[in-house]
Computed example of a mutant assay.
Amino acid sequence: MLEAVGVSEFEERVYRALLSLADSSAADLADTLREPARKIGPALAHLEELGLVRRVNGRRHAPVSPEAAIGMLINQRRAELDEAHGAAAEFVDAFRLRNLRHHPAHPVEVVSGPDEVRRVSRTMQHNPATSVLSFDKPPYATPPAGYDEVAAERPLLERGVEMRVIYDGAALELPGRLANVTELIRLGEKARTLPTLPLKLYVYDRRLAIVPLSGRHVSEAIAVIHPSALLDALIALFEAYWVQATPIVAVRAHAADGLDPQEATVLAMLGAGLTDQAIARQLGVSLRTARRRITAVMDLVHASTRFQAGMAAAHRGWI
């Protein structure tokens, strides 16, 4: 009965005998159980190690309360099983990634459940060898404010992974997001933007793609797509949108040209297509103040439209 917690059948007999006897020696138990004393000693030692038995007066033994002792063993075994379950999940991820890369059996694998989705997504994100193509579109499983995307992407960019990202207009309107994107551009990311995107998409090494299956709850389920006509179509969709998208550039402020860092930020936001309201939120100012600063920047580059402001900045070498 206690084999599940590491107690052998014979050791259980010894423990049961102790429960019905006064403090006993190995010799007493050998007489009671009609077993050789040489078998009793090791059994008592293991029961003592497990916490089921305690020594009394040196050579005698007494049972520990079963409620406490067996409960402790059960909890230890549960902890070991939980640890094994966690290790199994890592092995499953490795096995899944291997099969998806080398032995795909089906065009699409559906992964469901927040924990599984996070594990698979994290595995994919950390393993691209050559390239990542992405449609970046809210909502997010982890809000950008709680996720350091610069720290996450930096190692990939530093080892030469090509990262091309098209940002949905709503993604760039999130507070502080454009600053992060600008820093990623400085690190080597190629970024563009469109007012709206049809879906969230991640393509790794042009061999695997992830598409969330729920628009509102992105961590509920994803489709993992491996080499197939469907993957080719998704890559073609990305390339078609890339051609139409507007490049996002990191504006360089040059004191000699009269462009201070805040004006550079406004110019970058104009180039990214942010609305006046979104620029106000990014700057943390009122809409009236934001419009005043927008007008000042456009006057500085002698532009009457946002497009002209971007062209003038490019001509002057600010972007």
Score class of each variant (00 low, 15 high):
L2N: 07
E3A: 15
V7G: 12
E9W: 08
E11C: 05
R13T: 11
L21H: 13
A22Q: 14
D23C: 10
D23Y: 02
S24R: 05
A26Y: 01
A26R: 01
A27C: 09
D28V: 06
L29T: 00
D31W: 09
T32H: 13
E35V: 14
K39L: 11
A43L: 08
A43K: 01
L44Y: 00
L44W: 02
E49A: 13
R55Y: 01
G58C: 11
G58T: 11
R59N: 14
P63D: 06
P63K: 10
S65N: 13
P66E: 14
E67M: 10
I70D: 00
M72N: 15
R78L: 11
H85P: 00
A89L: 15
E90W: 01
E90A: 13
E90Y: 03
V92K: 07
A94T: 12
F95P: 04
L97A: 06
L100I: 11
P104Q: 03
P107R: 02
R119V: 09
V120G: 02
V120Q: 10
V120R: 06
R122G: 08
T123I: 11
Q125L: 09
P128H: 00
A129M: 10
T130E: 15
T130F: 08
V132C: 08
D136Y: 03
P138V: 08
P138K: 06
P139R: 06
Y140G: 05
A145L: 06
G146P: 07
D148I: 05
E149H: 11
E149V: 14
V150F: 11
R154Y: 05
L156H: 12
L156S: 10
M163G: 10
I166M: 07
A170V: 05
A171R: 04
L172Y: 02
R177E: 08
N180H: 12
V181F: 05
T182H: 04
E183N: 04
L187K: 05
L194A: 05
P198M: 08
K200C: 00
L201Q: 10
L201W: 04
L208M: 12
L208S: 00
L213H: 02
G215K: 06
G215I: 06
H217I: 15
S219G: 15
A221I: 02
A223T: 03
P227V: 06
S228L: 07
S228C: 05
S228G: 11
D232N: 14
I235Y: 05
A236C: 13
E239W: 07
T246C: 00
P247E: 03
A250N: 09
A250Y: 03
V251D: 00
A253E: 10
A256D: 12
G258E: 04
G258Y: 05
L259Y: 11
L259V: 11
A268M: 04
L270S: 01
Q277M: 08
A278R: 00
A278N: 04
A280T: 09
Q282Y: 00
L283A: 05
V285G: 10
S286F: 13
R288D: 14
A290V: 01
R291Q: 13
R292S: 13
R293N: 08
M298R: 14
D299N: 15
T305S: 07
F307T: 09
F307G: 08
A309L: 00
A309F: 02
G310W: 05
W318H: 15
